[in-house]
């Protein structure tokens, strides 16, 4: 669950002396939206985004890109003049959870990953995090999600996991929702790698658990989505 396992290692970079046109073409060629700028020692000095480039080019230029006057003017703009220097970086030992929370907090779509000497070793983007999270959820594999309402008491999770394991069903993932209508309850969502859940559902009900109505699942109940 660390950034260095999920990040993109082959980073396309620019340098401060590069001009706007070169940067734009580089980003289009590699289909990237974030261009980290490094010095000769591969130390991160800034970042240029596709938005920075667009705002440095008047919209008319996008159509009239080849007119030589404009080209000349744009090739005079060096990245060191437009790049963001005050940027958010993460360390390779940040967790995926850190990166997710940081994206929510900063509204930035990609973070350069740097070592202790500020040298660029990768980049982690929303795309990388989505891939990691699909893996965590287990939803790349066939299975069935069930929802169980659980009292917040010690040992509940073990009972559930044991009951499911006894049925020889393997887990893709288990989510536990922190918030529920009732303070002392938790909603537990095992993603089970099977098509055969009728029996285990009955068993859980016989053990006294309430199965959640799938249409009342947690996603709609999380706070902060006004």
């Amino acid at each position: 669950m660390f950034v260095n396992k999920s990040m993109t290692r082959k980073v396309i970079t620019g340098n401060p002396e590069m001009n706007l046109i070169e940067a734009r073409e580089l980003m289009i060629e590699h289909q990237i939206r974030h261009l980290p700028i490094v010095d000769q020692e591969n130390r991160l000095v800034g970042i240029v985004t596709d938005r920075d480039i667009r705002s440095a080019m008047p919209s008319i230029v996008l159509d009239d890109y080849d007119s030589s006057d404009e080209r000349k003017r744009l090739s005079g703009i060096r990245l060191e003049n437009i790049m963001t220097r005050d940027l958010v970086t993460v360390s390779p030992m940040y967790t995926i959870q850190d990166a997710l929370l940081l994206i929510q907090k900063t509204r930035v779509g990609a973070f350069p990953v740097v070592d202790d000497e500020k040298r660029l070793i990768g980049i982690i983007s929303i795309r990388d995090l989505v891939r990691a999270f699909i893996n965590v959820l287990g939803i790349g594999e066939p299975g069935t999600l069930i929802g169980i309402l659980v009292d917040q008491k010690v040992g509940q999770m073990k009972r559930i996991v044991d009951a499911i394991t006894e049925e020889r069903i393997s887990f893709g993932s288990i989510l536990v929702a922190r918030y529920w209508e009732e303070e002392d309850k938790r909603a537990v969502f095992p993603y089970l790698l099977t098509n055969n859940v009728a029996r285990v559902k009955k068993k859980l009900q016989d053990m006294g658990y309430t199965l959640l109505d799938p249409m009342e699942w947690y996603i709609d109940k999380l706070p902060g989505n006004e």
Binding site: I139, G140, E141, P142, G143, T144, L145, T194, N195, V197, P214
Partner: peptide, 8 residues
């Protein structure tokens, strides 16, 4: 598929 097998 978010509620039932096989997830596709």
């Amino acid at each position: 598929p978010s509620f039932a097998f096989p997830g596709t």
